[in-house]
Simulated scan of single mutants.
Amino acid sequence: MLKILVEGGVITLKSSKLVPLECVVVSGPEGTSSATKPIIEERVKVAINPEYSEQTVMIGSTLTEEGRNKLCGLLQRNLDIFAWKPADMTGVPRHITEHRLNVREGCSPVRQKKRGQAADRNQAIQEEVGKLVEAGIMKEVHYHDWLSNPVMVKKHDDSWRMCVDFKDLNKACPKDGYPLPEID
């Protein structure tokens, strides 16, 4: 479910994987028990910004043509809320986005030893950090308290995603008293 604030109220978009499953069950058997097979909803790639054809979103193919047009119109009217690159995320006041970590008293900062990376991973790290520095999201700090290594994860398109190894920082923070019972 997705709720979007618009003039005059809130629009709620609801979707269910059960609807296609119910349609298959109602249509009856066709030689095999298709109701037990997982239903994979196809998605359609739609360019929502006419000036930048690479800015696309995936929309479920179960939408009607009218529904797809309405959704694309809503997305086009609200293009300013999307961040297509790191530079698009700047300009939010610090009092809205800045937070402090709840590190337990008495825990001393941990500076992880630098881990070497393969050449292709190191190149991806340099590019990602360069983008974040250029956008003003990151800055160089010479005297840091905590230091964590980057961890590179291969994406499905063979590019790299940069993550950070926060295991030492996580150990210094208190556990959540009310963890989510099931993440699903």
Rank of each mutant, 00 (worst) to 15 (best):
P29I: 07
S15Q: 10
I39A: 04
E30L: 04
L18A: 13
L21C: 07
G28T: 06
V24Q: 05
S27D: 13
I40Y: 10
C23S: 13
T36R: 14
S34T: 12
S27E: 14
I39M: 08
A35W: 01
V25H: 01
S15H: 15
G31T: 06
S33E: 12
V25R: 15
K14A: 08
T12W: 00
S33I: 02
L21F: 02
P20L: 02
V26Q: 15
T12V: 10
L18K: 12
K17G: 08
E22N: 04
S33C: 08
L18Q: 12
V25K: 15
P20F: 01
T12E: 09
T32Y: 03
C23V: 10
E41L: 14
V19L: 10
T36Q: 13
V24M: 09
S15N: 11
S33G: 09
V19D: 08
V24C: 05
I40A: 13
K17S: 12
E30A: 11
E41H: 12
L13T: 00
I39H: 13
V26S: 13
G28W: 01
I39E: 03
S33H: 04
T36P: 00
S33W: 02
K37C: 03
E22F: 00
T12A: 07
K37R: 15
V26G: 04
G28Y: 00
P20K: 01
L18D: 13
L18M: 08
S16N: 02
I39G: 02
S33N: 15
G31S: 08
T36N: 14
E41C: 11
S34P: 04
P20E: 02
V24R: 11
I40W: 05
K37Y: 01
T32V: 10
E30T: 05
G28P: 06
G31Q: 08
L13S: 01
I39V: 15
K17C: 03
T12L: 04
V26M: 10
E22R: 06
E41I: 12
K14C: 07
E22Y: 00
A35G: 11
S16D: 06
L18P: 00
V24H: 00
G31N: 06
C23K: 13
S15I: 05
S27G: 06
S16T: 09
L18Y: 03
S27W: 00
P29T: 07
P29M: 10
E22V: 05
P38G: 03
S27Q: 11
E30K: 06
E41T: 15
E22H: 00
V25L: 12
P20Y: 02
T32E: 11
T36H: 09
K17M: 10
P38N: 09
L13V: 09
V25Q: 10
L13I: 07
K17N: 12
L21T: 06
V25M: 07
P38I: 02
E41K: 10
G28N: 09
L13A: 11
I40G: 07
G31L: 06
G28V: 08
S27A: 15
S33P: 02
L13M: 09
P20D: 01
E41A: 13
T36C: 11
E41S: 15
G28E: 06
K37I: 04
T12K: 08
V24P: 00
A35Y: 02
V19W: 02
P20N: 03
E30S: 09
I40S: 13
V26C: 09
T36V: 14
I39K: 04
G28Q: 08
G28I: 06
S16R: 01
V19F: 02
E22K: 08
C23Q: 15
G31F: 00
V26N: 13
L13H: 07
